[in-house]
Amino acid sequence: MTLVSSLLESMTGIHIFYVVGLLIFITLFIVIFIRTMRRPAAEMNEYKESIFNDKDPDGSERS
């Protein structure tokens, strides 16, 4: 732990940690957003509807 402590103590600019965090988030967000929006609508609809692919105990069916 002393090694880790010494290593971290040598780090400067700790105050920009949240800026780093923001950059990580924005990058990931853009990647996920673009990839998600490019997914085919038919695939999305199939997933959305999948929860109705069962019969409730009361016998009700998807309208």
Binding site: F29, I32, F33, T36, M37, R39, M44, N45, Y47, K48, E49, I51, F52, D56, S60, R62, S63
Partner: peptide
Amino acid sequence: PKAANRPIYSYRLSII
């Protein structure tokens, strides 16, 4: 969705 008997509005939104 089960109670309303209609699918969730946007699956894309759910991922994001």
